[in-house]
Structures are given as C-alpha cells and as structure tokens.
Amino acid sequence: MIVIQAAIAGALTGGLFAVMSVGLSLTWGMLRVINLAHFGLILLGAYLTFQLATDLAIDPILTLVITVPLLFLAGATMQYAFDRLALGEFNSLIVSFGLLIIVVQVVSNLWSADFQRMDATVNPYATRALTIGPLAFPLPTLVAFAFAVVIVGSAHLILTRTYPGRALRAFAQDRPIASAYGIDHVRLGTLLAGATGGTAAAAGMLFALGSAVIPTAPFEWVGIVFAVVILGGIGDAVGTLLAGLLVGAVSGIVSVVVSPAAAPLVIFSAVVLALMLRPNGVFVRRSP
C-alpha cells in the first residue's frame, strides 16, 4: 500500500516537474536555445508569489495575475536579445548560465539566503490534503498536477491547431525553408519565449505552494528537469508531461523502497539509458 501511495504521490509531484520542464523543452526544441535562465524565472516566480501573497494577503494562486505578465515580459525580452545576438544553441547555454547565477545571487541578496515559507494563514493549500480511502494526497501536488494538465494540454493544442503553433513547428524542422515561406521567427520566438516565461511563473507559484523557497533551489531542479526534458523528447509538450509523471512516480517508489538518496541515481541512469536507446525521447510515436 505504501508503495502505491508513494507512486501516486510521486506522479502527482511529477506534475510540478512537467510545468517546470515544458517551457525549457519547447524553447530548446523550437528555438534551439537551452535556457538555463528559465530556472531563474521559476525562482523569481516562487519568490514573487511568496512576497505578493504575504504582503497583499491574497490567495497565492491569484498572484499569477501579476507574475505571469511580468515573467512573460522577462522571457520575451531575453529571447529577443538572444536572437539579436545570434547566439547558437551552445552559447545560449553558457550565457543563460551566467544569467541564472545573477538571478540566484540577486534573489539571495534581496530575500536572504535562508529558507522562507508562506505563512499558513496566507497559504491555505500547504496544510491540506485530499483523502481517498487509505490514500492521502497533499493539496499542492494536486493543484500542480491540474496546472500541468491544463498547461501541457493547451500547449499541445496551440502547437497542433493554430497557425503560430504550426509555423513554430515548421521553423523547428527547417529554419531556412520556414523563413523562405514568410515565417517571422523573431516575432514567433519572442512570443513563445514569453509564453514559457508565463509557465515559469506558474511553476514558481506551484513550488512556493508546497515547499519553502531558497535561492539555491534551481540547482536542485536542474537534474530532474533535464531528465524530464530528455526523457520526454526535446520540444515534445505531451512527452514532457508523461515523462514528468514517470520520473515523479519512479523517484517516489525508489525513495520508499530503497532510500531517498537512490532516487537521483535511478533517474540519472534512466536518462543515460534513454540517451543511448531512444535519443529522440521515450514517448516518440513516429519513427524519426
């Protein structure tokens, strides 16, 4: 029973990983930018949620009204600059590493380097749980899971059903041809990066909902998020959700059955295996 509980709870936590990963995966796949600063945006989202909810005494989820536009702007500006500077995939990785460090340090200077947690009066979600029979699920993970389904679902619909989405996918497959057909990649790229900034705001809020925030948190996320991105297939929104659930469930089970220390090892091995056997992602349906 405890294993089932751990697996389901883990899979639900995986929803948070999916929300964190989906933006990174899409900008990597579509725009060829590996944006480590995405983790910085998530961190900012978490701290802004913490600060706004505490100061204004509003429901933490409502802070999205403010944080989503802010981080949309941040993500879009960053992508516009990357595009202007013509940074390749690799240089974007290094530059955004520098940006991530800057964000972490600034956050640490502004909010102190210690753990901070929203007060129970501000954050009604942290202490509640949904009980079904013998199984109990903390409310924050349920909320995160719901957000993951909504965000990934709408990303999938936008990419497959709308003109900008199809244009982006065309651009991801063949840049020169797509440009020749009149696809304005600067505008689309900026738009997509802005949207991923918005998902970062959501991810930050979801993280703050269930955990205490600390400036160095991004470095805890990096390993798992990249595992999710690579297992899900770079640029594949639905794959990211499935991979998030899988990674969450596996680390939940391993933590209970073996030890929490073993979870990252198992996930890391899974990534290496995936890279060797399925370099295009575990859930790819079509042949490459």
Binding site: V222, A261, L265, L275, M276, P279
Partner: peptide, 29 residues
C-alpha cells in the same frame, strides 16, 4: 557519455551539470 552516439556538446554539459547534484544528495544522506 562518450560512448553515446547521439552525444552532443549540450547534452554532455547537462549531464555534467547533474553529476555534482547527485553526489551532493548522496553525501548529504
């Protein structure tokens, strides 16, 4: 890593980013 046929510089960089994180969690526990 170097045996992976699909290894590209970006993937190697990300793999190495994860290694200290894993070792740190091992050491802590």
């Amino acid at each position: 890593a170097f045996r992976l046929r699909s290894l590209r510089g970006e993937i190697f960089a990300l793999l190495t980013l994860a290694v200290p994180f894993i070792l740190a969690s091992l050491a802590r526990i």
